[in-house]
């Protein structure tokens, strides 16, 4: 028994830890043995995933698209070029994610959305293999397994796309130790130039979030504006 609080808490059994310790790290610690193929992955996808995410992972019906926006060039460089393209609509999962473990871990713990943790280990390997294949990361005959996942990682399109060189990690192991990136000064008098309004909601959008008159208290220093009426 631990000191201090006798009788409170107990040692977890190995079976219990195994039941819940499902996370998979970028270094693949936690990845269970198993394997899957693209074609089995396609079956899993079509029966369990496509209804929400689209046959090619392109749908934005229930969530942003998973697939799209990455190129063979990205697979080489490890940088998704389109992240720099302001014209490209949306940013897909595979444009952003740098670690294949992330996808495996997440599908394993949380997908299908309405029946999480219902896939077998090999089904997870397979469907992830299918997504990697759709993204042009692995060839059609790639067998994804605990042994081969490191190879896939070497080809993740955005694998070099992350930095931890910032001040927003409140610990020492990563980041710059908490140094902010923006250094504003608290000027008090005659500070900026003449202020100009650069962005506002157009009049036709004023009722987009519902009638704001119904979103303010009925009494108080001011009321909500009736956005079903034109301004003025």
């Amino acid at each position: 028994q631990p000191a201090g609080y006798p009788g409170i808490g107990r040692e977890a059994t190995p079976k219990e830890v195994a039941a819940w310790n499902i996370d998979v790290r970028p270094d693949f610690l936690g990845l269970p043995k198993g394997s899957g193929t693209v074609s089995r992955g396609q079956d899993v996808w079509e029966s369990h995933c496509a209804a929400c995410h689209g046959v090619f992972g392109e749908s934005n019906e229930v969530f942003s698209p998973l697939i799209g926006g990455v190129t063979a060039e990205d697979v080489k460089t490890g940088h998704v070029a389109r992240l720099n393209d302001k014209g490209f609509p949306g940013r897909t999962t595979f444009m952003k994610v740098s670690t294949v473990s992330t996808i495996w871990d997440y599908v394993n713990r949380a997908m299908p959305w309405n029946a999480p943790k219902s896939l077998s280990t090999d089904e997870v390997y397979s469907v992830v293999d299918y997504l990697l294949n759709l993204s042009g990361i692995v060839p059609d005959d790639f067998v994804l397994s605990d042994a081969t996942m490191a190879q896939a990682q070497q080809r993740m399109p955005n694998r070099n796309g992350m930095t931890t060189d910032h001040g927003l990690w409140p610990g020492k192991g990563m980041g710059n130790g908490g140094k902010p990136d923006v250094k504003a000064v608290a000027c008090m008098k005659d500070c900026a130039g003449e202020p100009k309004v650069a962005s506002f909601l157009p009049d036709h959008a004023r009722n987009n979030n519902g009638n704001l008159a119904e979103q303010q208290r009925l009494v108080g220093p001011q009321y909500g504006v009736d956005t079903t009426q034109p301004p003025g």
């Binding site: 059994t13 309405n114 219902s118």
Partner: peptide
């Protein structure tokens, strides 16, 4: 049984929406 059933048998809320 080598484990608390509340741990070994995942509850419905760990497996649903």
């Amino acid at each position: 049984e080598g484990g608390d059933p509340n741990i070994l048998n995942l509850p419905s809320y760990s497996k649903g929406l």
